[in-house]
């Protein structure tokens, strides 16, 4: 099919690399389960996972301490799973955002999602539900999510003013909304005069997976997977998107509509992730570039591989 030798070599190289990455992926999961404040041997980790996933049929945890089992199962496994899907989601929506605004500097937070979510979270922490109950945890996530969506819709509204939505307008209005929302957050923090609250806002905005628990996972996993599969299926349109509006029209695709749809969906995904884990930087920006370096810009490979490599982090 491909006559050029160079091409064939390159795709062998890619396959080999992918294979290596899969192995490394599995290994890193097990390793991160085992390491931490309490060192747990890999064999024990394996036994516990086997036991739990098979519902007690396989594996033998009789001679492992109950505390160890709990650490693995209730603390570390959710965190690892969460980090996998957070990474997957961030990298995917980063790749999408870069295509949508045709700008290599774009990341999932470009549309003001980050500052929107921060504002939501700040609002939640400072005004009202700042206590440590589970109810407030949920509320924190929820209001961060709402803030993110609010910011996204503001950006969409702004960039629609004056006719056609262009990628320049999108980036500009994203920046504007970003500054407006973050200055509101600052205002709330300034007026609040609540040292404990300020601390938790700062902690939240640093991003953390510490809050992971089994109850939060199903929603995150399902949404992330569904959206990632959806984007992976859109590779043709995403590819033409990189060429710009003019060229896309000549290839029979008018981008305006798709741009809006993709942006809303990617924002939903990012909003959900931010709500769960706070702001985790750079994954959404850098992973798509790393993957492009290895596999090229074709979204057919780019989107799945972004998700996969993003899942490492």
């Amino acid at each position: 099919m491909f006559s050029s030798k160079k091409w064939i070599q390159k795709s062998y190289y890619q396959i080999a690399l992918t294979f290596f990455l899969v192995i490394f992926f599995v290994f890193s999961i097990v390793f991160s389960l085992g390491s931490g404040q309490a060192e747990i041997s890999l064999i024990d980790v394996f036994q516990i996972l086997l036991y739990k996933f098979s519902g007690g049929v396989l594996g033998n945890i009789a001679d492992i301490e109950q505390a160890v089992v709990n650490i693995i199962w209730f603390v570390r496994t959710p965190r690892v799973l969460m980090s996998i899907f957070v990474g997957l989601g961030l990298a995917t929506s980063g790749a999408i955002m870069q295509a949508v605004v045709q700008n290599p500097l774009a990341d999932p937070y470009i549309l003001g999602i980050s500052s929107g979510a921060s504002l939501g979270a700040t609002f939640a922490i400072m005004i009202g539900f700042g206590s440590a109950s589970i109810f407030s945890q949920l509320n924190l996530s929820l209001s961060a999510f709402i803030g993110a969506l609010l910011a996204t819709f503001c950006v969409l509204f702004l960039s629609n003013i004056g006719g056609r939505m262009t990628s320049t307008k999108l980036v500009l209005s994203g920046t504007i909304i970003n500054s407006i929302f973050s200055s509101f957050s600052s205002l709330i923090i300034y007026l609040a005069d609540d040292a404990e609250g300020i601390k938790s806002v700062t902690f939240w905005s640093m991003g953390s997976l510490a809050s992971a628990s089994w109850s939060k996972l199903p929603l995150l996993i399902v949404v992330t997977l569904v959206i990632s599969v959806f984007f992976a299926s859109q590779f043709r349109i995403l590819n033409t998107m990189l060429l710009g509006d003019e060229a896309a029209v000549t290839l029979g695709i008018s981008l305006g509509k798709y741009r809006r749809i993709y942006m809303i969906i990617a924002s939903l995904l990012t909003g959900l992730i931010v709500a769960n884990s706070g702001m985790i930087g750079f994954v959404g920006l850098i992973i798509p570039h790393i993957v492009r370096g290895i596999y090229g810009s074709d979204h057919k490979k780019l989107v799945p591989m972004c998700g996969f490599i993003g899942a490492f982090f």
Partner: peptide, 12 residues
Amino acid sequence: FNELSFDFTVFQ
């Protein structure tokens, strides 16, 4: 309009 911010191979 042949400017691109992202790279493709000629074949792609």
